[in-house]
Write a protein that binds this DNA or RNA. Sequence first.
DNA 1: AAAGATTGTTGTTGACGACAACAATTGTCC
DNA 2: GGACAATTGTTGTCGTCAACAACAATCTTT
Lengths: 164, 164
Amino acid sequence: MTATAAQTSPRKRRGNGAARRIDADEIGLDALVGHAGYAVRRFQIWIFQDFTRTLGDVDIRPTQYSVLTVIGANPGLSQMAVAKRLGIERARLVHLLDSLEQRKLVKRIKSKEDRRSHALHLTAQGATALAKFKRLAAEHERNVEEKIGKENREQLLRILAGFT
Amino acid sequence: MTATAAQTSPRKRRGNGAARRIDADEIGLDALVGHAGYAVRRFQIWIFQDFTRTLGDVDIRPTQYSVLTVIGANPGLSQMAVAKRLGIERARLVHLLDSLEQRKLVKRIKSKEDRRSHALHLTAQGATALAKFKRLAAEHERNVEEKIGKENREQLLRILAGFT
DNA sequence: AAAGATTGTTGTTGACGACAACAATTGTCC
DNA sequence: GGACAATTGTTGTCGTCAACAACAATCTTT
């Protein structure tokens, strides 16, 4: 009753009944092919690798880039606001900002209105650096386009727009 | 020259020039909206959460499910073959199999042809369990469909088919 | 003023990708 | 046939990341 899948292509059959060499491309994924999550996971790994490689010279990872971009576009945000907007744990954002602040890209300014919170700003150096990061990120995006096609990338963005 | 983005909607302006309460939905993402990787990351987090929640009662995570599915569909594979097919580090697969073997879902059988490798098989208990996991995974997939739409899910699978 | 909620912080846990090293075994090359 | 290289599973480390829990300082509410 359950699906059978082992025999992707019955080529190269050998006489002996025992195990034979199996090429990776003839291993069936069975139910996995119908799961969006599996494809998305594999794609996301590829994307992050390409991003990390393309921004390797400037040593910026995807999450760091997203934090810098949001702070750059919305100066003065609190850590809570940034964390909530990007779906990052606020505990995790602490370490991210520690790193970015050590690199003089971001500064935490004590808020006068709410002395619990910090207003986040890019440093002048951070703004300059972010401009460069954006150029490299655009280059990465062109790699994505080259990989899956221009129309497919746009459809992807449209389909997933609700999650941003 | 760089893009401006802070003012998503200029409502609720208050007289004072200082910081005001900022609702999460009015924080602009700036360049992030054009990045497929950001949308994919957010989507993947949602998918994994839903999968983990839907398969919560049976305590199976996405990676474990993928390993069980491939072994079930291709009995006798070596660890190397499974790792390569699923894009998992073979070092990581060792721990995954340790866990699955402890739970009596999978067994490692010493290969006669190549005494370095193990032939991986589901136990009878594992085969029964996998059938249940597949039913729950299908339920998760219906959640995905409900979330992004039937056609969008199919387009997604088609666009990302090359990464599986 | 007291009680409760929020903000940033510290710490822990576990999943995960990436690497490096190693023993056992197999394949290759001369 | 024997030295050398490659493969397989394993162990270990490192860094990223999501998920919690607890805490002090600081608002907010009542």
